[in-house]
Design a protein around this nucleic acid. Structure first.
Lengths: 345, 345
DNA sequence: ATGAAAGCGCTAACAA
DNA sequence: TTGTTAGCGCTTTCAT
């Protein structure tokens, strides 16, 4: 269909090597440069990256595997990462695995067949074995949000436990003594971490601890709403609640709305993740924020460094023969709203 | 690195054609099938789709160009489309062009170099010329949300004008006579359509029409907030407002919150797009919804049909030599909330 | 600086 | 059914 380098060669009377050299920024005699550029324009030549990829064994493509595209937290990360990667010439192939481990496995295979150069993964499944074929092939992986035992790759983490602990500490400092939590699924790493942070704060401050003060919301809107109702029924005297992700925060607010609970007079609330939602709420919600832009930046940068730095994915061993991978842990932020009421102590 | 078909051939003593035939679902003698499968397992062979793509001139990859990934409306469409495409063996390369025409042009080139088989575009720029190289190459394009003069491709549209008109008619039927609108940017097709719908309803019902009743919110949160303030200042007696996209709805609600305006007692509101947000609001917002899942389905199906049906992208002409492309226009929905107050007439 | 030629891993046409 | 072979469009030695 389109013109190839061969056509350019024929048209200019030059050899393939010269054209290739020109295309890759090599030295070409001025006279020939002009001729080549003319031919390219005339024949509408455009490099075929597929052929290039086959030859060089580098597709300049990164696979991204994530639990849910339709989720502000992940969408923000992808947006940032895709931008940076593309500005370095890398395409991104995104696979949404709908929080399903089997789909995640399929996505890895799918991307492996397409010979992506590396992977950015926000893991869903528990098993590291799925990813081993990339490691074996010397292709780097960057994991976001979770560290996996048994797999040698760079990780970009967020201090989820610390964030949750800090949020609950704020409630405690405001005088709250009966604080509930809407927690995520038990099999999701970040959910467990956030719950641990809550429990740590509760225990350290010797505040009322009670199983019925933790309701599981499954990281969904519906789950958040149901959890809020349960929490309120079991603990009518609860004065504050910490909600540990965005979707559940939306659900909880729906329920609070339905139950005609006044925030913060009857119930103080601290949420998670989405500043826009928090600011639009009545009253504005106080929330924990995650540094999505930095996460994206770190993930993309790390991967590119692996890909273009001196160390290839599998060669990165230090002197003891151990793999040398980096783990970056980022701090969360906190946006103050008007959803926490200071209590008389 | 990994094993190739040649290795399998050597290992089994068979020819390349047999291996290829096996891999592509052709007929292979039972005995050989077993041998091949054994070799594949032993050597960890996995098809190289890059090589396959070079040979067949079909990469089984679709490019998706959109204004903003970080936007629920688009994210939902991508989620749906990616799912369907992947289940048909197609990868998706996503390019977020940040609502910038120049970036959009770059994305088209980028994807063309990578030889994607087709394009799904939610256009940002005004020019169709950018896309012509795909049409020339016989590669199909599906446009979402906007029809472009001068480009021959399938379109999936939503009746934006009708949706807006219907929303405003509801306000009018509830007795409202002074209705404001927060409109999107003038250079965005859907924004103009929605504004046209508003004006049509106003004119048809001979309701108060006034330039200061339309404020432009630029499809952003901040813009929505500013527009809300302006609207309120210029029209203190306005009893209802129609907000024509999600981000502006969030911004407007923030402002309404700041101004201590009670919804719907002092001001009735109809919003757009995000059911989750609408339901979590206090009170629940009435909104126009777009059928994102259907849009995604139609877009993916249409593209796959072009790619695998008998008609190639450029061959689809009817008897007059005209290109035969399909345009599907989908209906919007409406979710009733408690944000519209019936007025005594 | 440039040309000739080999080959990346696959498919497909042709022969057997 | 299976084997042989050419070639997709590029990069990359190795000469020149």
């Amino acid at each position: 269909m389109g013109a190839t380098m061969k056509d350019i060669a024929k048209c200019t009377g030059l050899g393939l090597a010269t054209i290739s050299s020109y295309l890759n920024g090599g030295n070409v005699r001025e006279k020939n440069r002009v001729k080549i550029e003319e031919a390219i324009r005339e024949l509408h030549f455009e490099v075929n990256e597929v052929a290039r990829g086959l030859k060089t064994n580098r597709t300049k493509t990164i696979g991204i595997i994530l639990p849910e595209l339709n989720n502000i937290f992940f969408a923000e990360i992808i947006t940032g990462a895709e931008d940076i990667l593309r500005s370095h010439g890398y395409a991104t192939m995104i696979c949404d695995c709908r929080s399903d481990a089997e789909r995640e496995r399929e996505a890895v295979d799918f991307l492996y067949h397409r010979r992506v150069d590396g992977l950015i993964v926000m893991p869903t499944g528990a098993s590291d074995s799925v990813f081993q074929k990339f490691i074996r092939a010397g292709k780097p992986i960057v994991m976001i949000d979770r560290k996996m035992k048994g797999i040698s790759c760079d990780c970009i983490l967020v201090d989820n436990q610390g964030a949750a602990e800090d949020a609950v500490n704020r409630l405690i400092r405001s005088g709250h003594k009966k604080i509930g939590m809407i927690a995520g699924p038990d099999d999701v790493y970040t959910a467990r971490e956030r719950q641990r942070g809550y429990q740590k704060a509760i225990q350290n401050n010797k505040i009322i601890s009670n199983d019925s003060l933790i309701a599981r919301g499954n990281y969904t809107i519906a789950g958040g709403a149901a959890a809020m109702r349960k929490l309120r029924e079991a603990n009518p005297d609860m004065t504050a609640v910490f909600i540990s992700n965005y979707e559940m925060m939306v659900g909880a607010m729906m329920e609070i709305n339905d139950l005609n609970i006044r925030v913060p007079d009857e119930l103080s609330v601290i949420g998670f993740d989405n500043v826009d939602f928090a600011k639009a709420s009545v009253p504005k919600l106080s929330i924990v924020t995650q540094p999505t832009a930095r996460i994206a930046q770190e993930a993309a940068d790390t991967l590119i460094k692996r890909l273009e730095g001196s160390l290839s994915g599998s060669d990165c061993r230090d002197m003891d023969g151990e793999k040398t991978t980096a783990t970056v842990t980022l701090k969360t932020g906190f946006v103050e709203g008007r959803s926490v009421k200071p209590l008389k102590q």
